[in-house]
């Protein structure tokens, strides 16, 4: 105080400025408690900090265990209870079930096509995003990626219903030139279209860091060595962007394979994917056993693909570099 105190007289009537504040007392008390912590249990602190998160994810693990358990029991349709005994009957039934095969096939073909189209479209978007000299364009392109992510799938699918419906935007426009109306909704291509639009931001966000990591000088070097733009793209940029392309493909593939909302809303019940089949088993047929079996197969499929992604990209995906 003496250093700053140009007006010591003004403070005369007040308590001394060095009074011990309440917040300090609280902190001291906390420190005292912390000091009581036995030195031997020093290592337990980090586990205590980690415990809540481990418990939260533990719910998911517990859920999967309950699901696996249910998938091994057969539904008794006289009592609507799962049987007491374990059996693989649900899985056996799955592999001989025509509807399952058709749905699996439909989901897999969609996964392949959506992944292909997403990569094709995400590449120029990510390229423009990372290479543009205009900060404003970059910002606009970034906001365009994040906005749909936060808008949510149902609202976006609803937007497509308004655009593609019988009296939707597209059919109104076609009507002006004397065409249509066409039945655009509730078809397989529409579901694929909705999925591509939904997955595009994920693909761009996985691809962009990989493209950003390629120095522009390398492209200029290729050009100065006489490579055309196309040749530079094919021989230099694409091979260097491969990790990003693989990551984008795997993310899009897992999300597409296991999607529910787009087939349900844009497919109108006739273009179901595996997740819709699971939902129907629980809420329409009330067969929790068979539903659990499909869900488990789907979980294993999805987790395998995602595991490949982690192996390829490293656990750095969580952004944790560990202690330094």
């Amino acid at each position: 105080m003496a250093i700053r105190g140009g007006r010591p007289a003004a403070r005369a009537g007040r308590p001394p400025a060095t009074a011990y504040r309440l917040s300090w007392r609280i902190l001291d008390a906390l420190e005292a408690v912390a000091a009581r912590w036995p030195a031997r249990a020093e290592g337990a602190v980090k586990w205590l900090l980690l415990a809540p998160a481990l418990a939260v994810v533990g719910l998911l693990v517990f859920g999967l265990v309950v699901m696996a358990d249910a998938s091994l029991r057969v539904m008794d349709f006289r009592t609507y209870q799962l049987g007491e005994d374990y059996s693989t009957a649900n899985y056996v039934r799955l592999f001989g079930w025509g509807a399952f095969h058709a749905t699996l096939w439909r989901s897999l073909v969609a996964t392949l096509l959506v992944t292909l189209f997403c990569l094709l479209l995400a590449f120029p978007y990510a390229y423009a995003l990372t290479r543009t000299a205009s900060a404003r364009l970059r910002r606009v392109l970034l906001v365009g990626l994040f906005l749909p992510f936060f808008v949510g799938q149902v609202v976006r699918a609803y937007g497509w219903l308004v655009i593609l419906g019988q009296q939707g935007l597209v059919n109104q426009a076609l009507g002006l030139v004397g065409l249509g109306p066409y039945r655009l909704l509730f078809s397989y291509p529409t579901v694929l279209f909705g999925l591509v639009q939904y997955m595009l931001p994920f693909a761009v966000l996985m691809l962009a860091p990989a493209l950003a990591a390629i120095p522009e000088e390398i492209e200029r070097a290729a050009a100065s060595c006489g490579a055309s733009r196309g040749r530079t793209l094919l021989r230099v940029v694409l091979p260097m962007a491969r990790p990003g392309l693989i990551a984008a493909a795997l993310v899009v593939a897992t999300l597409t394979l296991t999607d529910f909302a787009m087939p349900a809303i844009l497919g109108g019940g006739t273009n179901d994917f595996l997740a819709n089949l699971v939902h129907d088993q629980f809420f329409r047929t009330s067969n929790a056993g068979l539903g659990s079996a499909i869900a488990l197969v789907l979980t294993l499929l999805g987790t395998t693909v995602a595991g490949l992604l982690l192996a390829a990209a490293g656990v750095g995906a969580l952004g944790l570099r560990g202690a330094r």
Partner: peptide, 24 residues
Amino acid sequence: AIQLYLLLPFTVPLIGSGIGLMLL
């Protein structure tokens, strides 16, 4: 192992976690 465990919510598809949590 801890990081892989904490990433489970992303690697398990939503329909799997959803049904599991519903049953639990």
